[in-house]
Design a protein around this nucleic acid. Structure first.
Length: 469
RNA sequence: GCCCUGAUGGUGUAGUGGCCUAUCAUGCAGCCCUGUCGAGGCUGCGACCCGGGUUCAAAUCCCGGUCGGGGCGCCA
């Protein structure tokens, strides 16, 4: 539940429920108006108990037929679950519940002794997904009804955490001198290469949805903005169907001038460390909400373990050796696949960087140094990944800032440099050495919240078969 | 794109050819209750994904379709 201690009254309430819950002792006897969703409606006689919930807390409203107009009482006691209701009444201390012998009484709670009220919008029945039901609901049904799913405490908590993670990430980058920018999402041609793009018509011109802000953040740095970041959508027309892929996702991207790969790895590990530190300090209540649900489903609690920095760096060449010694078949130049990552993660649980990939496996815009070769003579690059367990969080690297090398890289990959003028033209008038990365926000949230599927931490996910809601 | 797997009331499930006009929980509706709090008691409501086939007999077996889930590949 959100902390609303500073929230002002609105047209529909004098207090948030959270304000009454946390201040009850000081405002006993005071008349307040609150509004919320009817979580339960109990008692069908001459008294009635409404459990009201808003985004800040839950409180019981006590209705007695003698204390109010009978038609208001009748409509409220026959209201359906999840209807939105406004009540006016006096704050009172709640009678303590019966407890088994030997058990301690809970700490004092407060309720509203209702004198009048109004149903703002009644809920149809039955609910397509229960908000407080114990029954486990399938993800697909939940996503079809996300507006109701979101009323569940632990789901709500996950999205509050998501907001916090973005907030703390922003705070940290701004502190390190990065400024927020926005790049276009409608583009004429691929800005990164590699994956398939969604085609679209831009009036009479064929265009695509952007797969990455890569080129634009580099152009911003070339233009002298020095240090930039962007949190925005990226679109990939890949027909994958996994717990960690979506066709639209939010990418957390940075780019910094006069930096190399090691510099931006430092930015990243400091940022992640800052996010975890802030969550541990400020948001344990959200983690607790998630754990209440996890425990009810027989899952272990999650803990916010602040990752210490620096994160381990396992150079690609070393990673290959670790995988080999773990018994898997892999050669220098092969991609490190998920089952290989399991072997590495067994040795390095938690966040770890994998720098110095073979140049041939990285995009043409990644920087390399001629003298950095593998023992077998293969050219290494200044590209890196950040992994957690078997999952890739980030891809990044130092970029190539010399246009003649960029064009040579393209030729080395059997590509025609003229086809990439949209990219290389920006590099013809002087360019600072620079580096950056792109981080999958939902994947980071999976690590923090223990979610087993990115769809859990994306409000309205877009996957291969889902375009609504 | 490949491999595996699944679809039963609103939701989550039981069911392995006849015992199924289908189990349980939750929900929903109605009645009882002036302090409930996982409220309780009583009475009801509500389902075998679609199409074809096998069989005396199909929720159950076979084929096709649709829509899910898991794994792989690719990536963030």
């Amino acid at each position: 539940m959100r902390n609303s201690s500073d929230w002002k009254p609105t047209a529909y309430r004098t207090h948030t429920i959270g304000q009454v819950v946390s201040n009850g002792a000081k405002i006993i006897g005071k008349e307040v108006t609150i509004a919320g969703y009817a979580e339960t409606v109990r008692g069908r006689g001459a008294i009635c108990f409404l459990m009201l919930r808003d985004g800040t807390g839950k409180i019981q409203a006590f209705l007695k037929k003698d204390n109010m107009e009978s038609d208001i009482f009748d409509s409220m006691q026959s209201s359906t679950r999840e209807s939105t209701i406004k009540v006016t009444g006096f704050v009172a201390q709640k009678r303590p519940p019966k407890v088994k012998e030997g058990e301690a009484l809970p700490s004092p709670e407060y309720e509203i002794n209702v004198s009048s009220g109004e149903i703002l919008a009644s809920s149809e029945t039955p609910l397509p997904v229960g908000v407080i039901d114990d029954v486990n609901v399938g993800l697909d049904v939940r996503l079809d009804n996300r507006h109701l799913d979101l009323r569940r405490t632990h789901v709500n908590a996950m999205f509050q955490l998501r907001s916090k993670v973005l907030q703390y990430g922003r705070e940290h980058l701004i502190k390190e001198g990065f400024m927020e920018m926005n790049s276009p999402k409608i583009i004429a041609s691929a800005s990164e290469g590699g994956t398939n793009l969604f085609p679209m018509m831009y009036f009479d011109t064929p265009a695509f949805l952007s797969q990455s802000p890569q080129l634009y953040k580099q152009l911003a740095v070339l233009g002298g903005l020095e240090r930039v970041f962007e949190i925005g959508p990226a679109f990939r027309a890949e027909k994958h169907d996994t717990y960690r892929h979506l066709n639209e996702f939010i990418s957390f991207d940075i780019e910094g001038a006069w930096m190399n790969d090691e510099d931006v790895m430092g930015v990243q590990e400091r940022m992640i460390n800052h996010i975890w530190t802030c969550v541990a300090q400020n948001d344990q209540n959200l983690i607790d909400s998630i754990n209440v649900y996890r425990n009810s489903q027989g899952n272990d609690s999650i803990k916010v373990e602040i990752p210490s920095i620096p994160f381990p760096r396992i150079a690609y060449c070393d990673a290959i050796e670790i995988v080999k010694s773990g018994g898997a078949e892999i050669e220098w130049g092969d991609d490190i696949e998920s089952h290989h990552c399991d072997i590495i993660a067994a040795k390095y649980p938690g966040f770890h960087f994998i720098p110095r990939w073979p140049m041939a496996m990285k995009p043409f815009y990644i920087h390399h140094k001629e003298n950095e070769k593998s023992t077998s003579g293969g050219q290494l690059s200044r590209g890196f990944d950040l992994n957690y367990g078997r999952d890739e969080m980030t891809s990044g690297g130092q970029r190539e800032h010399r246009v003649e090398i960029l064009e040579q890289n393209l030729r080395n990959m059997d590509l025609n440099p003229e086809d990439f003028n949209f990219y290389t033209d920006g590099f013809r008038y002087g360019a600072p050495p620079h580096a950056g990365w792109g981080l999958g926000v939902a994947r980071l949230l999976m690590v923090l919240t223990g979610a087993g599927n990115v769809r859990e931490v994306v409000l309205f996910p877009r996957d291969r078969s889902r375009v609504t809601p």
